[in-house]
Design a protein around this nucleic acid. Structure first.
Lengths: 215, 215
DNA sequence: TAGATTGTTAATCGATTAACAATC
DNA sequence: TAGATTGTTAATCGATTAACAATC
């Protein structure tokens, strides 16, 4: 597949393209030009063409892009043509919420297990799955071919658990714990720091008020 | 306060500085140089100094930065010195998870209400709050001085609700719905598109395997 | 064929890093 | 005072946008 390093800025935009193309497809749209898409998505047509051309020439001069085809191709680029096996670590509210969010499994992200160190939660059912004790995690990962671990435990435990996951040869960690994980380069970490996001919103809205008042 | 437009790249890094400074403070560290902090955070010292100087000169030549002082100043910049009143719209798993996450209220983000259009949920208690019907939302926002609305409903309803929120003069929307909201410039939107984040992780881990296999 | 629109190169813009004079 | 380290300017790097030749 791809050889050259592609910037994370580009990667971050792919899911959004994918979403818009999915909507177009559902609306029965067959073809779209970068210009039309650009208007819809509020980005430049240039950027769309540049971004896509990192991965290949999906369009056709004088025609534009075939929606269905491009949709499928982006799915492949994102690895959505393959199934991913996930486990959730931390059966709190957030872990449960993610597990129950059906849209993920629709895209091939299959939750295989959920773990918690709280004995009171162990054995209770969340969706289809029973909460397992942490001790079973390592064996479970190997046995069930787990790709991705979802970390929804408080930051105090997260670093230790991440180390354990690395030992288990996990490939990817979706990290909701409010701490930076240090892992070998062959383990991918995607952080969702909710409080950072909320603070950013707080800044932007506070600042807007200041500007308004200053005028 | 600030006049000049500061890039979102800078703003996005502030919460992370804030987190590291908080930890240093808790560890009883009094002063830190940009170089030391740079090593800890794995960013360049230059970037730290540049970023901070957008907001003022918080350091002192030959000394570095006073941890406690800088911590408090960043909090002010982020608007954490003021309380924010929030409502959650959508009492599903995710809405409940956010509401129950106590770290937010510790930073001054106070959940005042939660709304859902499902009559079965209305009246049930989530944390300290009773789920209210959507019809009460507008009045509630005005009466309780709500700054921030947290949108945790499916995308089908999100656009309509966002319009309503704009009418209610909300300042900020924390959007977990998988759709782009179009709002006037005086309303800030911060998106948390979880599936986009997961797809990015999927890409990065799939791609790493490809590189490895190619070698 | 003529018109449309891509793929791609070149130009611009912005963000990051380096360097150093100012100063505690 | 001498050493350390900031604040800030200048240089570099990378990402975005513009332009246009290639081509469907």
């Amino acid at each position: 597949m791809e050889r050259k390093e592609i910037s994370q800025a580009v990667i971050s935009r792919l899911p959004r393209y994918y979403r818009y193309l999915g909507e177009l497809r559902d609306d029965g749209v067959e073809r779209i030009s970068s210009q039309e898409l650009s208007k819809k998505m509020q980005v430049t047509a240039s950027q769309i063409r540049q971004d896509l051309n990192h991965f290949g020439g999906f369009g056709q001069q004088g025609y534009g892009y075939n929606v269905e085809y491009l949709y499928v191709e982006i799915a492949k680029i994102l690895g959505l043509d393959q199934e991913h096996n996930l486990i959730v670590i931390g059966a709190g509210n957030l872990g449960q919420a993610l597990l129950n969010y059906s849209n993920f499994s629709r895209r091939g992200f299959i939750f295989k297990g959920i773990f918690d160190h709280n004995p009171k939660l162990q054995g209770t059912k969340i969706g289809e799955l029973e909460v397992r004790p942490m001790e079973e995690m390592s064996a479970f990962i190997t046995k069930n071919n787990i790709d991705i671990a979802v970390l929804t435990i408080p930051k105090t435990g997260a670093v230790k658990v991440a180390e354990k996951l690395v030992e288990c040869n996990i490939r990817a960690i979706w990290n909701f714990a409010h701490v930076d994980l240090h892992v070998p380069e062959w383990v991918q970490v995607e952080n969702v720091h909710l409080s950072d996001s909320l603070m950013k919103l707080s800044y932007n809205s506070s600042r807007y008020q200041d500007i308004k008042n200053a005028k």
